[in-house]
Design a binder for these strands. Structure first.
Length: 257
DNA sequence: ATGTCCTGCGTGGCAGGA
């Protein structure tokens, strides 16, 4: 089973790129972030025609998350991260596909930091940590994947000294991510590629992709039941070089059966 | 500070987010 995550940065602006990549990569399940579309503007027909069923949670202008499944059933579990009934951002959707719980998340960027946006990011991470602990106790195989907007270590950024005060790399952000990992989650990409330079995002500015000036901020976190099934993982880096592409590249992992 | 690309608003380019 191949599961992918892709921050599309507008699902409609990216539709040709998304369809081309789906046809090429043929993932079984795909988590999308940054739909930038209201609920009724999700391109459901085109996704269906490509062979996928989908659930999604849209929002005007920003955010928005979706889970696509090829062939198999997709059973929605929730479309809100618990812990703050006043939070209106569409940043989390969770489903069960073939016995696996799939949490698709778009963690707040948090810049500028410090400030209210950074506070929101940290409180969202607290809520994620709480929810992740509940998922761990469920006994089911679980993956939490998406755009974490977290650079976990210096290894995951082309020039760490430029990012010290950025919300994606600040100590509070990295500590919260480590707190999450220590619950018992495995970073699938790092587990299989401990020493490689791997990026999933390149700024649209300053020819970042051409200079390989990237960040690794899209992650797969696996609980122990799923980690034992992990066989391969990687980034479809070339997709970042296509015309009218997103600033993120698709990331994927393959599980045994 | 800069750079680019997206959306909304609403028809011409800004403002805001990333």
């Amino acid at each position: 089973m191949k599961i992918a995550t892709y921050n599309v940065n507008s699902v409609n602006a990216r539709l040709p790129v998304l369809l081309r990549w789906l046809d090429e990569a043929r993932p079984d399940v795909v988590c999308l972030q940054e739909l930038k579309a209201v609920q009724e503007n999700f391109p459901e027909q085109a996704i269906n025609d490509a062979g996928y069923s989908a659930i999604w949670h849209g929002q005007k202008a920003w955010n928005g998350v979706a889970i696509l499944s090829r062939g198999g059933n997709i059973s929605e579990r929730r479309r809100v991260l618990p812990g703050d009934p006043t939070d209106e951002h569409s940043r989390y959707i969770e489903a069960e596909v073939d016995g696996i719980v799939i949490g698709c998340l778009y963690l707040p960027n948090g810049n500028p930091a410090p400030g209210p946006k950074f506070d929101y990011k940290l409180s969202w991470m607290d809520r994620l940590i709480t929810h992740a602990a509940e998922l761990l106790s469920s006994g089911m195989p679980v993956v939490l994947t998406g755009d974490y907007n977290v650079i976990p270590t210096e290894q995951d950024v082309y020039k760490p000294e430029n990012w010290i005060n950025d919300a994606l790399f600040r100590p509070e952000t990295r500590e919260a991510f480590q707190t999450l990992l220590k619950q018992g989650w495995t970073d699938a990409i790092r587990k299989l590629h401990p020493n490689d330079r791997i990026y999933t995002y390149y700024d649209f500015f300053r020819n970042a992709f051409g200079r390989d000036a990237g960040l690794r901020i899209d992650h797969f976190l696996l609980n122990p039941q799923l980690e034992s099934r992990l066989r391969a993982a990687g980034v479809d880096r070339h997709v970042r070089g296509w015309e009218k592409t997103s600033d993120h590249a698709p990331v994927w992992m393959e599980l045994e059966h």
